Amino acid sequence: MVADDEGTHAVELCWSDGRTETVRVGSDETVVDAAEAAEIALPYGCLYGACGTCIAELLDGEMTHRRSPRALKDRTLEAGYVLPCIATPETDCRLRIGHDIQAEVVGTPWK
């Protein structure tokens, strides 16, 4: 998986209901920014990596966080989760996304 001539990577967004969308993400933008520009709604809150609302599972590819992903513990990072609000792809990627992932990873006070 290699960037195209424009320096972008394809990021396939996969929801739990089976829907998928692919967005091109430039090296200077985050996944959330690229999705917004393509009019694809993703969950997010703070856009700084602190709240964890946008947490996603990296299924394939490589991503880098632009700053410390404060909302993710080391074990969560090691398990392959990323924060699309501060993450940029290093290769073409596949992400499992949606509101249910935060509850799955972090838990909720109602369970």
Results as ranks from 00 to 15, higher is better:
Y44P: 06
I86L: 08
R96C: 00
K73E: 15
T91A: 09
Q102E: 09
L95H: 03
E90W: 00
M63C: 13
T53R: 07
G61Y: 07
I86C: 13
Y44M: 09
A41K: 05
D100Q: 12
E104K: 04
E62M: 11
V105L: 11
D92E: 09
L83T: 13
G98T: 10
Y81S: 01
G49D: 04
I86S: 10
L95C: 04
I101C: 06
C51W: 05
L58E: 04
Q102D: 00
S68L: 07
T76M: 12
I55Y: 00
A103D: 12
V105F: 01
I97H: 02
I40L: 10
H99Y: 01
G49F: 03
A71S: 14
D92I: 06
S68Q: 12
G45R: 08
K73L: 15
P43S: 08
L58F: 02
E39Q: 10
G80V: 03
G98A: 06
T88A: 14
L42P: 09
E57G: 01
P84C: 12
C51V: 07
G80Q: 10
A41Y: 07
L72S: 08
Q102R: 15
L59P: 02
T88I: 10
Y48H: 13
P43F: 04
T88E: 14
E62S: 14
C54G: 04
H99D: 11
A71F: 05
Y81D: 02
L58D: 07
Y44I: 08
P69W: 09
L42I: 11
C54A: 06
G61A: 04
G49C: 08
A56Y: 03
R70L: 15
R96T: 01
R94Y: 00
A79I: 03
L72D: 06
T76A: 09
T91R: 12
R67F: 02
C93Y: 04
D60C: 03
G52E: 10
E104S: 12
A41V: 11
C85S: 14
A41R: 09
L47A: 13
T91V: 13
A103R: 10
C51L: 05
V82L: 00
A50K: 05
L95V: 08
R96G: 01
L95I: 04
G52F: 07
V82H: 01
P89N: 07
V82S: 01
C54L: 04
L72H: 02
